[in-house]
Amino acid sequence: MRIKNHPILGEFDKGRTVAFSYNGAPMTGCEGEPIAAALRANDVIIHRYTSKEHKPRGIFCAIGRCTDCVMIVNGKPNVRTCVTPLEEGMTVETQYGLLTQEEAEAKGAVL
């Protein structure tokens, strides 16, 4: 899904490739790009499930406004993945419902 040789922008100036984990599975992305972009490049587009109806949600606005793309990142819930830069070794997990930090920890979110 990564764009190679764009007709106007040429090659994208991306950060170095780093490893992170998605629901425990190893993945790679570019350092500094939004977590959501790294996930999209790995064909992951479901970020969370809603609390009442358990419906999947993914990126909608991609600029940090709509909060549809929140996930649990490094054990912290409700992180907007479209505006949070990817760092080496991050743990990224699907979020189920709205969580407080305590609930996330109780559910064993920190892998």
Partner: peptide, 21 residues
């Protein structure tokens, strides 16, 4: 609300800023 329904601005952000389709 299905993942894959996105704003046009989001599409533009993904393509032109992050280089991901």
């Amino acid at each position: 609300t299905l993942p894959g329904v996105i704003g046009a601005g989001a599409a533009q952000t993904m393509c032109n800023l992050h280089g991901v389709k």
